[in-house]
Design a protein around this nucleic acid. Structure first.
Lengths: 146, 146
DNA sequence: GTGTTTGCAAAGTGTTTGCAATTTA
DNA sequence: TAAATTGCAAACACTTTGCAAACAC
């Protein structure tokens, strides 16, 4: 059995998490923060999905603020941007090195833990280029019943 | 030394290539086709870059037609769409299974041949999902001299 | 109070579409 | 001539931005 002591230290509250990120705990940021991190599970959201989620919960936040907040969270290291689709931007609450299944039909993302994955045969990056990150996207199609 | 007899059979002409794809060889499609495939090298274009290229060469084509043509070529198997950036769509003349270096700074793409690459440890796709394609994107940063 | 954050609406970017005019076979 | 293709301009989806009002400390 593996220990999980390397998990991120759980924050006592969303306020604490925001403070640690150097962001004022405003009403809007608090509800977004709670929604993203307090379920305890990895989440994949777009600005739109997160926005309608908080709206449905009765919290008033503008879409522009959701966009801004997602980027602030990303810059602060709380989120990670995932590029799998030309149209929309996904944000992942899992910020550790890992990969993704992407359901091209429904637009669903599923994490693939980065631990067991080994890529063999990758050539050296060109010139003096430094590798920033290696992303694997497994594009899958789930048969839709029609 | 490896033989290269598995390369795509070279087409006598752009006309022939279009016919084989079931597309009428119009003036616009012909110049786009020539530009894409007659250099003999792998190319990575966006609608914008290809459009300004043909314009610069004195050929009159509308941007809308470039978009439509790129998608027709893709559907016909002449091109492959590459998703590396949320903003723009790249098209690759290399349609075989392979991967990419992506210069996040300059937006440049570079192919990584698919032959030597082995990914170990990928879990089974969820449910009855079928894998459509596995993409590796190595995001690199080339230091810009300032 | 002072600097930060918000919301709105407008602007921006890349892409798609409807349709009349043109071109191809 | 009949069917396919083009170009334009308008529509589109998603995202960013400018700025006055609201808010946090």
């Amino acid at each position: 059995m593996q220990d999980s002591s390397h998990h991120h230290r759980p924050f006592a509250s969303a306020i604490e998490r925001l403070r640690a990120a150097g962001l004022r705990p405003t009403r809007q940021r608090l509800s977004l923060c709670r929604r993203l991190f307090e379920g305890g599970q990895v989440r994949h959201v777009t600005a739109e999905t997160l926005h309608s989620e908080v709206l449905a919960a009765g919290v008033k936040v503008s879409l522009a603020t959701v966009y801004n907040t997602l980027h602030q969270f990303t810059k602060a290291g709380l989120l990670r941007e995932v590029v799998v689709d030309g149209a929309k931007t996904y944000f992942d609450t899992n910020t550790s090195s890992h990969h993704h299944f992407y359901d091209v039909e429904h637009g669903d993302l599923l994490d693939i833990g980065g631990e067991g994955i080994i890529i063999e045969g990758l050539p050296q990056p060109p010139d003096g280029a430094t590798v920033e990150r290696v992303d694997i996207v497994v594009r899958v199609r789930r048969p839709s019943r029609d």
